[in-house]
Design a binder for these strands. Structure first.
Lengths: 115, 115
DNA sequence: TAAATATGCAACCTTATGGTTGTTGATCCC
DNA sequence: GGGATCAACAACCATAAGGTTGCATATTTA
């Protein structure tokens, strides 16, 4: 059955896991590196950090779980690439909340000013 | 001294705490309730949830720590209100990353197509 | 003033999170 | 083949997170 397009407010989407995945400096820097479009291996993503490759692997798993990245096996290395979808959803979410807030404030202002 | 307006990419702002604060369903629903502009007491924010008032209080502290909300004491109750700033920053962040990605893809596409 | 309401503080519990080390298995390259 | 490279799996550890209960405190309000 076809999924009806829900209103931004109505679709009680699970944004929480996406935000949670982005709520870590290391993972944000991984996202930053991958946002160049160039796929990175785990070893490469580990270079320049003070972390172990294993730690970076775990972070990648978290990002993968939130569908923020996906990996492709290439020979002996595992290439990770950004999945832009969830980030666009984050943008929409923030947009909706901001607008909601702005309109609410406008209404309150109008209420106060009507005399 | 005046804080120079940094570029969205240049200001290595700490987005992680904001994302982390939003990375929880309960806190997202709190933000949703407050985005109406109407201040809510802790008791009111607790109504309708299956949580304890103490649990909600803890979540509010987290949101407060990320400057997503602030509270004003009104008699015996503590009214919480949304702080829209961080959410706008989140929107900008997602916007920048999305655009970065899109431009990177466009460059790759151009590279492939040049023959 | 006394009951009811709204909150704060502290202690405690369980599980998730971020990280490490150690070992094993593929794969590339000389 | 054999060493170097890239990565997976598992065990383990310390601390943070999310939640609860119990008790104390301020503020309405009947």
């Amino acid at each position: 059955m076809s999924q009806k397009t829900l209103s931004a407010a109505g679709r009680r989407r699970n944004y929480a896991p996406i935000f949670a995945a982005l709520g870590d400096e290391t993972r944000l820097s991984i996202v930053a590196k991958l946002s160049t479009g160039e796929p990175h291996s785990i070893a490469r993503l580990t270079d320049g950090t003070h972390l172990t490759r294993q730690a970076v692997t775990k972070h990648l798993r978290v990002l993968e779980g939130a569908h923020l990245v996906h990996s492709v096996r290439a020979g002996r290395e595992n290439l990770y690439e950004l999945d832009p979808g969830p980030i666009r959803e984050v943008r929409e979410y923030a947009d909706v909340v901001s607008q909601h807030w702005d309109r609410a404030l406008a209404r309150l202002k109008a209420l106060v000013e009507e005399d």
